[in-house]
């Protein structure tokens, strides 16, 4: 317990000091994808549902926030709120349509719906097609915090990340989380105990989509850009990779995965197409050799050495 508290303090201290050591925009990008992966993990790791369409929530929320702030002059908090609300509504629609399907069919329905969102974004005028929404003004959060200041922006992003991760952690360790665990472990048994499991899965799906939207909205603020990349299926695949690489079903795994993948993309960007190949190789290695992911394997190692 004490050890855990020490580790927690070290992590928070590192997060607070980080922008003075590392390029803040890189950190913020990693935090946004970290939150995205944590939201995704609520479904994959804790509910047992593989969604292959999460880019739709992430990317479309980014568009909504960008449009609201640039065209309507919305303040950052309202822009984020709009993005999150739209993502939640989309999550409800996707969820209602997909949740009755199981396994691969569930993944396929979410993918199909996300592709529809993608093609809508390609065609709709407000997204500006290939150009995306550019030069989105950041404004002042609550009329006070100037987000154009890199350090202010970093701490705001860090705070949003913290809140998002806390919400997921709370949900997992709640009465609701207990039922989700039961559903993941043995769904027919959960039904036979009188739980309408589809409603619980739907609630988890909406919660996950909402937080994915939050991650997308905040990312718009960081890059001042909302583009087709964010709604593309490739982004849906990337969040799966991050979660598996870090360790699904572990609290911190997706964050670690997001940092590793973002690092690879940022620092190896010069080698172009090779990044995708390296990602592919990593993915194969993880699913064949390190099933539990980085954090999962580390926890298992600690557990083993403790038992000895």
């Amino acid at each position: 317990m004490l050890q855990r508290r020490i580790w927690g303090t070290v992590l928070v201290a590192a997060a607070l000091a980080a922008p003075y050591a590392v390029y803040p925009v890189f950190l913020m990008k990693a935090l946004c994808f970290g939150l995205f992966a944590v939201a995704f993990n609520l479904l994959l790791g804790y509910t047992g549902l593989l969604s292959f369409g999460h880019a739709a929530f992430f990317g479309f929320a980014a568009y909504v926030t960008g449009h609201a702030m640039k065209e309507w002059g919305a303040t950052p908090e309202l822009g984020i709120l709009a993005g999150v609300a739209v993502a939640a509504a989309m999550g409800l629609v996707f969820g209602v349509l997909a949740i009755r399907r199981l396994g691969i069919y569930f993944a396929m329905v979410t993918l199909a719906l996300a592709q529809m969102v993608y093609f809508f974004c390609v065609q709709a005028p407000f997204t500006h097609g290939e150009d995306g929404i550019q030069a989105i003004p950041r404004g002042k959060l609550f009329g006070l915090l100037p987000l154009d200041d890199m350090y202010v922006l970093y701490y705001v992003v860090l705070a949003v990340f913290g809140i998002g991760v806390w919400i997921v952690w709370r949900a997992i360790h709640s009465p609701f989380g207990q039922v989700l665990a039961a559903i993941r472990e043995n769904e027919p048994r959960a039904i036979s105990l009188g739980y309408r499991t589809e409603r619980f899965k739907l609630a988890a799906f909406v919660l996950s989509a909402t937080l994915a939207g939050l991650a997308g909205s905040v990312k718009t603020l960081v890059f001042q850009l909302a583009s087709l990349t964010d709604v593309q299926w490739h982004t849906s695949g990337e969040v799966v990779l991050m979660t598996l690489l870090g360790g699904m079903g572990t609290a911190l795994g997706p964050v670690v995965g997001a940092f590793v993948v973002t690092t690879i993309e940022n620092y190896l960007a010069d080698i172009g197409a090779w990044v995708t190949i390296i990602q592919g190789v990593i993915f194969v290695l993880v699913v064949t050799l390190f099933r539990r992911g980085i954090v999962g394997e580390a926890l298992a190692f600690i557990e083993r050495s403790r038992r000895r």
């Binding site: 709370r170 949900a171 360790h173 709640s174 009465p175 609701f176 989380g177 207990q178 039922v179 665990a181 039961a182 472990e185 959960a190 105990l193 009188g194 739980y195 409603r199 619980f200 609630a203 919660l207």
Partner: peptide, 25 residues
């Protein structure tokens, strides 16, 4: 899940808080 948690999942439906994701377990 532990034996206790297994039984508790069945009991908790009676509390009516099974959708409360904001409440501590």
């Amino acid at each position: 899940m532990t034996v206790l948690e297994n039984i508790r999942v069945a009991l908790q439906r009676g509390l009516g808080t099974s959708f409360h994701f904001w409440r501590s377990d």
